[in-house]
Design a protein around this nucleic acid. Structure first.
Lengths: 234, 234
DNA sequence: GCAAAAGTGTTATCACTACACCCATGG
DNA sequence: CCATGGGTGTAGTGATAACACTTTTGC
């Protein structure tokens, strides 16, 4: 037996929802689509899965092609498969969301795509069902970050507690009490205080911290209940 | 433009991980695969996605064909796409997990498939990557049920609190204190006490409860923290 | 009348919230 | 010397966990 007979075959693509944080806002890395249909419309970065390629490999390849980065935090989000989602022909999209340190990709590695960081609050119309994908990715980010310490993936290796707080506040669109916030993060034991300070954002300067990678891996599942009511979870 | 050129097209299937609870154990509804390769090996119920069919529709169709049921709780689990996962030809599998009231399908609607309920602890070898799918489904069930009241989907409309407790204990493989358990479930306000009792499982009899459907929908996202440490979440 | 499961209440501990002041520094 | 953001402590409240006895009834 070499083939299943009488079944239809479809194109399979991956699309990447790439999050970054610039210290103020959550942003997405979007591109201008390079081919028809909808050429030059805003779009997620994506690509077709090759015949001998896994989804993860395809997503990593696509992300690398755009940013030059490897080893990025990525997670499968959802498989989109409405029959008419791509008007050209039936194409299934396996979506991945990625969290990257925005400082690792401020310069355009590859300007073939005209990529830009765009704040989540100011998204343009996107092609096909990409807006729905983004919405789902944002919900999943909120959901997951309430339970697991994934937001560190959006920060540089060395970061301050006020920076971390700004990030959580941007993700959930709330404000936290800084005393309670710092107590809570520090009580996880995931942070290692550094000797040096960030002197850019204040006169006094704020101590840098690093993630304790060992504990991060060990406690990834124990970091429950970070945000009490993260809104619309799913 | 009528086709994307130079890309390979793949078969797309859905596979259903169908959970049931018989009052003692969590079980899966498995079938004996009806065609080559691996004919007569244990397998999840699945089928190819048709040219004009969405994934959800395909999963619902497959579930209905096996059980005769409609309107079942289903959720997309994960897209499996390793190039060699099906030795015949490249086939992508979009998996769905379903929670059904086992009493709705005790009789074989369709014995074309030789379906059987098999306890999670006693699973046979399954074809392809179906064992991995089951493992992931079980993890997701634990994860999600710790946060949302989905386990009610596994019970009949009328159920008792001791039954519900047995279900949670089976899902997490732990035991709970019955006083704390009943206080906690009742405090959600999701349950409506009935006038009649279940007299089968004890001499005294236990009151039946029903789900308050309105509150269930409203509080679906507020049912956090049911289980304190549900083990390996992801 | 006894075995078997249902049902219920109290106390101690822990985690979370709210809230206000001092510190270090660059200008 | 003052404006700016960094850093810390306490008290009140609510949720959770541990724990034992009484009730009902079929046999």
């Amino acid at each position: 037996m070499t083939r299943y007979s009488g079944q239809s075959r479809m194109l399979v693509a991956v699309d990447c929802i790439i999050f970054g944080f610039d210290g103020e806002e959550l942003k997405l890395l979007l591109i201008k689509r390079g081919f028809e249909p909808q050429k030059n419309k805003w779009s997620l970065m994506g690509g077709f899965v090759q015949a001998d390629e896994s989804f993860e490999a395809a997503a990593a390849r696509v992300l690398h092609k755009l940013t030059g980065l490897e080893g990025v935090y990525m997670e499968q989000l959802f498989a989109f498969g409405e029959p008419a989602r791509d008007p050209v022909e039936r194409t299934v999209s396996i979506t991945y969301f990625a969290l990257i340190d925005i400082n690792q990709y401020k310069l355009q590695i590859n300007d073939e795509y005209h990529a830009e960081w765009i704040a989540l609050g100011k998204l343009p119309d996107l092609i096909f069902d990409h807006t729905e994908m983004v919405k789902m990715a944002q919900e999943k980010l909120r959901y997951k970050a309430a339970i697991h310490p994934i937001l560190f993936e959006l920060l540089p290796q060395k970061f301050t507690i006020p920076q971390l707080q700004l990030l959580y506040e941007a993700v959930y669109d709330v404000t936290f009490d800084k005393r309670n916030f710092s107590r809570k993060v520090l009580s996880t034991g995931l942070l290692i205080k550094q000797k040096d300070k960030d002197r850019l954002s204040s006169k006094r300067g704020a101590f840098y911290f690093k993630l304790d990678k060992r504990k991060y891996n060990a406690k990834f599942n124990a970091f429950l209940n970070f945000v009490t009511d993260p809104g619309n979870l799913r």
